[in-house]
Design a binder for these strands. Structure first.
Lengths: 219, 219
DNA sequence: TGAATATTGGTCAGTATGTGACCATTAGTC
DNA sequence: GACTAATGGTCACATACTGACCAATATTCA
């Protein structure tokens, strides 16, 4: 009994403060360029204290990933209950997606990198699971929207959810990546937004037009 | 070099948190009725931790006194620069005095008790000095107002500052004490306020009327 | 009244948290 | 490919916190 609650709370606060400091630095300079000493200074701690809360620099990085993904999840989690049409849901989804990642390009970069190099990051299996689980949740929302579309007769009954979820996901990621590659986001937000909007509508229209036709094969 | 600044800040925060907890309890139940354990619990700490920040229960009590007196000082410290007439300054002074102590009767009780029993509380001499110094500051303001009155020709040039400062101080304290003794403040604020207002004006008028006459003897 | 019991201010040995000098390894330089 | 600099991670030491404990006092009750 006793004061554990307060101590737990304060320990957690400290941890969050470290993560805030680390996140800012990672965001500004990228993983490699940031030293643990810098993170410690920004958090007004010594380097040793950092290792009371995290096993390694990479673990910090991973937890930031988890936090940010969780924040994103929270944003999109209400979509399914909105009662909008599936198309509108996807449009809203993409808006959130864009807003979020244009506002946090480092996270986007990290996520894409993680997707591309899961093995290389050789994190503890448990961490890996967490991230995978988190991204799965995101996928679920997309599939959920597709399912609603199916239930409402807007999409074919027999489509492969995974395939089209991936298609839409890829569309978003691909366009954003391209955008980040070709230019700064600041003055081109309108372009990327309308590009995605338009592509998405085209894709969904295409999908809807198959309602009468037969199913796709499993991949 | 290093993180001392942050540690100092956090240590001070902790100390203030303890004082807040202690103050609330002392205010509600009085010094004797409060146990150190209760203070610790309210501050979400163990009893032992309390003694890292304070040498004794009484030291806590004393520091609360100092804090509250300091807050009061701050309130009255601007009076001298207000440019009001001395009489108005005293009226304002008394308003602040009443507001403050009706809002914090325990502090008033404590202060009066301390004034009456400085020795009995046998605090470290240094602490004693602090409190005495603080109350002296308060006295200074009153003497300052009197001095302004003298400079402006409203009060006799030769009055004994200490005597009249004490008279006014005593007037305020006495009426408030009486009031606390005879009834609850809530529904009698108007009465105590007008009583003090009126008595104060009478006293100051009396003092002003002596401008032409000779000085009082030193006491 | 005075012995038994309960309460509580204060202590201290043990634990958790934080510090910074240090080390091993790797990256960079010439 | 030897030398230097930078940096992730470690550890002995320092500080903050905990709670069982004790001595002294207050309370209860026969």
């Amino acid at each position: 009994m006793g004061l554990e609650e307060r101590r737990r709370r304060e320990k957690d606060n400290r941890k969050q403060a470290i993560l805030r400091a680390a996140r800012k630095l990672f965001f500004d300079r990228g993983f490699k360029a940031v030293t643990v000493e810098q993170i410690a200074r920004r958090a007004e701690l010594s380097k040793g204290a950092i290792y009371l809360h995290f096993r390694s620099k990479e673990e910090m990085y991973t937890q930031i990933l988890l936090n940010d993904i969780a924040a994103f999840q929270k944003k999109i989690s209400t979509l399914l209950q909105s009662g909008d049409s599936p198309t509108d849901m996807f449009v809203k989804f993409s808006r959130i997606y864009i807003d979020f990642f244009l506002n946090d390009r480092e996270l986007f970069r990290i996520l894409m990198t993680f997707m591309l190099n899961t093995e290389q990051m050789n994190l503890p299996a448990q961490m890996n699971d967490h991230i995978v689980k988190a991204t799965n949740k995101q996928a679920e929302v997309m599939e959920g929207i597709l399912q609603i579309g199916i239930d409402q007769g807007q999409f074919p009954k027999t489509i492969n959810l995974r395939r089209y979820r991936n298609a839409i996901w890829g569309l978003l990621n691909g366009i954003i990546s391209l955008h980040l590659f070709t230019g700064r986001a600041d003055n081109r937000e309108g372009i990327i937004r309308s590009t995605i909007d338009d592509s998405l509508q085209v894709f969904l229209r295409g999908l809807a037009s198959e309602v009468v036709k037969g199913p796709k094969k499993e991949e």
